[in-house]
Write a protein that binds this DNA or RNA. Structure first.
Lengths: 243, 243
DNA sequence: TCGATTCTGTTGACACTGTCAACAGGGCAT
DNA sequence: ATGCCCTGTTGACAGTGTCAACAGAATCGA
């Protein structure tokens, strides 16, 4: 393994493209006209959708490790590398998967809040239940959303937006809780409080996703029940008699 | 992509080995004598160690995604596939990396506890600080330890043991806290309480590792300070005047 | 209406990966 | 001394992500 200078320095015959290109949407040619949306073959509604759906299925089934363009393309009924007309690279596809994940998570949080009793504690509990249940049901997707398959979320504006929306929803809920519970002349840093709440919820979700809870015996405890057990615990301490 | 039956069904000419083999240590030949430790070339102390060290460096530097046998082997001064005399496969190598991670984490927790003031709250805070600081300093290693690069920890007994030891340490600390704080006739489920504490700590660590906290302005808050801010917050609520 | 342009998909290639079989030499026990 | 086993090398194979070159179809500008 000594001998420097092997058979490197091939490739890149003509142009010098491919070197610097944003990880954005698809391969650009020329922005020019603004109406470049419904060109080319109709293809029943867009290959892009099909590719995302196929990727979603595969990610759910076997995680992000065994996810390959060839299999995705096969499921979508096209040849490999067709996907490169719709996604810059694999990371861009995963960003789309993550984006859909945040949309779904937001939906679930809104649902749970709507179903909750009309007090801030119940509403927050609803969001936490939605968060953890979502993670438990779609662990691989959850990992794509929060893991390092997408090293820099800022390179994917749509994903960034979806993330921020979910984030804002959660923060608003936490702020309400704090407002409601924080009487009594205490001054608490809202950011620190939010981070604590998020850590609690995200931590439980992560531990479930990574298979760290429920090793033996009790088999499968409902994730929602775990969250409720936690909030009950907090209430117990909040209402405990003074020492 | 049509035409079934391509040029498959090659390989596997002679023996039928490689089919069923545990994901344990290295390629077994015959356990036989118990003294098979210092055979072959001396190689300054074992290639296995060098491989783990090289893998550690690379994992820290660029995560588990760009981790390749060839580069690892090059750093260790051997040829690719030499590693297969010491590790069943890549997962086994990662398991070794994770195992070392748990050992290191345990060390740090013990250190912090030793340095802490002599009350249970401080000792627990010390463990939490160790946990989160470790994650922040070695995010890639933390991910290997808790992520899904190793799908089933039970296939790696040494890793399982290291994990369980750390886990036990943490649980013992939480149990002490509960014992100390749980006066007042309340009955709390110790498992639920432990899970809550672990979720809080692990959640903060995960959020930091995945770059979810500290997006703007405040740049780099010390992870230990974040933990202390959290425990202070909890104390504030624990000691708040009754409503 | 018609040619030019631009999308979108296919084909085939390249560099690179994990893993394995076949081989080779050194150290150990017999 | 002999033979076995350990540990390393070499070279291969199947499979990966990505790209260049090509080809048909839909649209736009004239």
């Amino acid at each position: 393994m000594g001998e420097a200078s092997r058979k490197k320095a091939r490739r890149r015959p003509g142009t010098a493209r491919g070197a610097a290109r944003a990880a954005g949407e698809a391969r650009p040619r020329k922005p020019k006209g603004a109406a470049a949306r419904t060109r080319g073959l109709p293809r029943d509604g867009g290959l892009r959708r099909d590719l995302i759906d196929a990727a979603l299925e595969l990610v759910e089934a076997s995680g992000t490790r065994g996810l390959g363009w060839r299999e995705i393309a096969r499921r979508a009924g096209v040849s490999h590398s067709a996907a490169y007309r719709h996604f810059e690279n694999k990371e861009a596809l995963l960003a789309a998967v993550a984006e859909e994940g945040f949309h779904r998570l937001t939906e679930r949080m809104v649902e749970q809040v709507a179903e909750a009793r009309d007090d801030v504690a119940s509403r927050f509990e609803g969001m936490a239940v939605a968060y953890v249940e979502f993670a438990a049901e779609s662990p691989a997707r959850f990992r794509v959303m929060f893991g390092r398959d997408i090293p820099d979320i800022n390179k994917h504006p749509a994903l960034r937006e979806a993330h921020d929306f979910t984030d804002g929803l959660f923060r608003a809920g936490v702020a309400q809780v704090l407002e409601n519970v924080g009487k009594g002349g205490m001054t608490v840093d809202i950011d620190a409080f939010t981070l604590m709440a998020w850590s609690l919820v995200h931590g439980l979700a992560s531990l479930i996703v990574d298979g760290r809870v429920g090793d033996v015996s009790e088999a499968a405890v409902d994730p929602g029940d775990r969250v409720r057990a936690m909030t009950d615990l907090i209430k117990t301490f909040a209402q405990r008699p003074r020492a």
